[in-house]
Write a protein that binds this DNA or RNA. Structure first.
Lengths: 176, 176
DNA sequence: GCCTCCATGTAATTGGTTACATGATTCT
DNA sequence: AGAATCATGTAACCAATTACATGGAGGC
């Protein structure tokens, strides 16, 4: 077992596999797709982490399929570790925000360049917002998993809308 | 000179030193204070990065003061690199969001625990919001630097308010 | 004299990305 | 036959945190 501490990525993998058994390849595509705006991970980080979680008893690896495909499933010990993380610990990471960091230093460039920066930020936010809105328009959650997805989507809608409005307001502060 | 690529932290240091010359110790305290919600860095990362920036000609180190204090100032080459970063490149980091990642997996715990999670998120957001509001109440920007700070603060106000409202809404979705 | 804060640095480790490397299956 | 996709893994490197290590200056 040799239980080492589980990283955030490890917990993310447990969370995804709590839904259904998947391979490293499937998980990699999930990070590229659904989870793109939430967390990211490359296969080079995922495969070794799966090995570790299996070694420590949080996952079991089923029979190897075609093309060497390895499907992992969560164990009771893995479910318990996921639960413990979700209900007994809190997020404490100070989230780094590069958009805001740059905003801090915009006084050092011509007002015209600063304005262009915030206008571009607004455009990017409005594009993302349109994407979120089109998903939300046709999505009616029916399962607990789908409700959780809808809640995450709602965060995207609200925070991205706020970000777009902020960027617009900021651009106006640099008007000549 | 040996110009290597400058990291985001390197650009953050250039941005701070564009305001006024400072020591590594001063910069460390700035990351702990004003920049706490925007970017973080420990002295163990800052000191070697300052050496690198000085080696590559972006900074110059003035005379060593009391207790070995080393004050760095930005050079014309450093100012140009800061400008280039701000106006000719864009933020591309996919921001990781642990709060949202956990929300994704909340279907797997009892509704009561999920509700408690979002209620706690709301509390944390409202506390931060109150802090931002009290700063904003008495702050009237007079210099370009202060305007940039006010714009960053406005982001804090708007995004944190949206986060609090989202968390409240999410908690309601898990009502019995 | 002792405590706190100022001040700098390195070493060890973890987390994450890019690059390297290989091979099977399916589609055209 | 060739291309795209499925599928896994390792090595090298960069970014970031934690721990280790040292010493000066000022206040009590």
């Amino acid at each position: 077992m040799s239980s080492e501490a589980v990283s955030i990525l490890g917990h993310a993998l447990l969370g995804l596999l709590a839904g259904r058994p998947m391979s490293g390849y499937d998980l990699t595509r999930t990070f590229d797709g659904t989870l793109h705006f939430v967390w990211s991970a490359k296969h080079a980080q995922i495969y070794p982490e799966l090995s570790r979680l299996a070694r420590d008893g949080y996952l079991i690896q089923g029979a190897t399929g075609a093309r060497g495909r390895k499907v992992y499933a969560i164990t009771p010990s893995g479910s318990e570790e996921l639960r413990r993380w979700l209900v007994e610990t809190s997020p404490d990471r100070s989230p780094r925000n590069e958009v805001l960091l740059r905003a801090f230093f915009m006084w050092s460039v011509p007002a015209q360049d600063a304005r262009a920066y915030f206008e571009e930020r607004e455009r990017v936010a409005r594009d993302a917002l349109a994407q979120f809105e089109s998903i939300a328009a046709t999505f009616e959650p029916k399962t607990p998993e789908e409700l959780a997805f809808r809640i995450a989507l709602e965060s995207g809608l609200r925070l991205t809308r706020a970000a777009a409005e902020w960027a617009q307001w900021a651009a106006e502060q640099y008007r000549a």
